[in-house]
Write a protein that binds this DNA or RNA. Sequence first.
DNA 1: ATAATTTCTATTATATTAGTAGACTATAAT
DNA 2: ATTATAGTCTACTAATATAATAGAAATTAT
Lengths: 149, 149
Amino acid sequence: MLPKKTRYAIKALMVLYPTFESKRPMRISDIAENEHIPKKFLEAILLDMRKIGIVNSKMGAQGGYYLSKHPNEIFLSQVIRFTGGPIALVPCVSLNFYEKCEECADETTCGFRDVMREVRDASLHILSNTSLADLIKRERNLENKKKSD
Amino acid sequence: MLPKKTRYAIKALMVLYPTFESKRPMRISDIAENEHIPKKFLEAILLDMRKIGIVNSKMGAQGGYYLSKHPNEIFLSQVIRFTGGPIALVPCVSLNFYEKCEECADETTCGFRDVMREVRDASLHILSNTSLADLIKRERNLENKKKSD
DNA sequence: ATAATTTCTATTATATTAGTAGACTATAAT
DNA sequence: ATTATAGTCTACTAATATAATAGAAATTAT
């Protein structure tokens, strides 16, 4: 399960989507209110997103947050890794958070690990090829489909 | 990440593999010691595995645990779900642990949910088609490959 | 009858996640 | 310049979930 932090982060980025073109910053408090995210928590999350160059901020009156990276190049894998940790189900197959298996005598011949690697590859394939722009596209598609029913 | 409980469970089942044919029970304390699993924790885990009919136990002297279901029909998905919870990354796409999304206005048009559904399907496809017997086969294969190097 | 082994109920410890508080800093508008 | 606005930073607290432990009770082989 992804932690709330990750889900809030993605939700917030989706809300910030229009700011990439408009360049008009959005206030944390507005996003927090509209999306039902605790404001202080969201502050911390956006600060993290800024650290990895996905968003930028402007202090003071008329300030706020805006996307600083093209929505085509903001990938779910990056957001998840930075806010929620590993995509893999076990540390011994994690690419970014690898830890040696405690109980395994020999990792290289562990059958379970082998399967876990497959699962990781399958998930990662999707997550590292889905961008923020894709999320928005999907949403539009689903909305249109719904209307036409 | 899968909790230790799940990893211990799978490890234990792999160790119990030969008991399906031999029908000779293995002691909890032996498994615990060999696999570096806290004994009391493993007791609880095996009790759970018994509840879902994967293993059976015999009390008293010469007692212990043995597989009661064919290794071809013990699937990772079942073990994970019973010991570690959802396979999905968000509750709103979980088949067995569904929860309504708190922040989403309309789940059916949520772009993120749509991707999460894809990830779940990809993971589930692997996990519900991989059996305990497959794990053992893989392990044998990896061991043989290694030897021939 | 005894020793071996699982079962059951309760409790404790540890780690992780989620959320809060408040002082500090930068900016725009006047 | 002053003021109101809005993000930044450091520290703390609360809630929840995971991991591990303790010990008495029940069952079975010898």
